[in-house]
Simulated assay, not measured.
Amino acid sequence: MAWTKYQLFLAGLMLTTGSINTLSAKWADMFSAPGCSDVPKHSFSHPFVQAVGMFLGEFACLFVFYTLLCRDRRSPEPQMNPGPSFNPLLFLPPALCDMTGTSIMYVALNMTSASSFQMLRGAVIIFTGLLSVAFLGRRLVPSQWLGIFVTILGLVVVGLADFVSGHHDDSHKLSEVITGDLLIIMAQIIVAVQMVLEEKFVYKHDVHPLRAVGTEGFFGFVILSLLLIPMYFIPVGSFGQNPRQVLEDALDAFCQIGWQPVIMVALLGNTVSIAFFNFAGMSVTKEISATTRMVLDSLRTVVIWAVSLALGWEVFHGLQILGFLILLLGAALYNGLHQPLMDKLPWFRSRAPEEGGGAEERERLIGGQG
């Protein structure tokens, strides 16, 4: 069945904005500018400020939701289901997980390449699968367990590629690259906890996806914005990558933006892209399928890698291709993308998961991720 022009537009929008989201964040990290009070020129290293911008983009999904709802209600035959009323505080625990995981990942992005950053985020499959078995009582079929083990193998290969490239990378020390990779994987544990919390407490209330993302974005934006104040006074020694060596120096970030306004373009690219990415991703699921969304999400890793190579942000390593292909295979096995082929071979047919193994449940686990 051929796609309509609208479906092609949605697929292209999701692929483009998803790629821009990571690339713009990495682009911001590559700028250097003077700071406040005649502080000499230094790199723009403000992961928590970047995370605030990302949550602002998620928060914008709430405005999109109410705009669409108002437009729908004015039509002769309203079709949009806003969902039942709910307590917004339901979203506070997953929002705190999102805030913590996102902040850690932006710290890690300062230390490693954009392509490795995107590839290593595939580790979320491992922890989501294990936590869903432990806390949601879900039973994974053999292909999903195989997908988890294949994903672990892929992570090892990508890690080896970074270890090899770290010896030849002038922009990052080997220790920084390894630390960054470990932080990304650690962040996926927190992201997996977020997904399990959403599955257990939030989605049973049938909340509209845009409303869910926007509400989490609201909590993340408000809480992290307030936390920037104490972060300004918390010393972290040599771990701090800003001149004052504090957890986050938001004033330094604003001063650097004043000296180098192009940084704001990169930050806005991250904010705007995350809003459009969530909208496009949910629309792709509705108009095409959750499987298509998963495939497009994997393709953006290729786009990020290709653009990074073209811009000279990183050097080519064959191990990364192998690692990406293995991670792609692991994701395909876990998400059941192999099933249509297996169904044509009677001796390979496997029983569908009894609890929560369908595309709808897996779609809930990928909603709202930047």
Score class of each variant (00 low, 15 high):
M14K: 08
Q144G: 01
L227V: 08
H205Y: 15
S45H: 14
T301R: 11
F91W: 12
R139F: 12
G53H: 03
M195N: 14
P261T: 14
V236M: 00
N270C: 09
K26N: 12
V133K: 09
T291N: 13
L160A: 09
F239Y: 14
L299D: 11
T128W: 06
E248Q: 09
R244M: 08
G312C: 08
P353S: 13
F55H: 12
F48R: 03
F324E: 00
K204A: 01
A95T: 10
K41L: 07
L226K: 00
L309V: 09
A253G: 07
M111W: 09
V133E: 01
Q144T: 05
I148L: 04
Y66Q: 02
S103P: 13
L15H: 12
G35V: 08
L182S: 04
L227D: 06
L140N: 04
G101E: 04
E287L: 01
I125Q: 01
V302I: 11
G166M: 03
L153C: 13
V307S: 08
F221V: 00
I366Q: 12
Q7H: 02
L299K: 03
F316R: 09
L130S: 04
S75R: 03
P88M: 03
E58Q: 13
E354A: 15
R121H: 04
Q241C: 05
L247K: 07
L68V: 06
H167P: 10
V49A: 00
F324G: 00
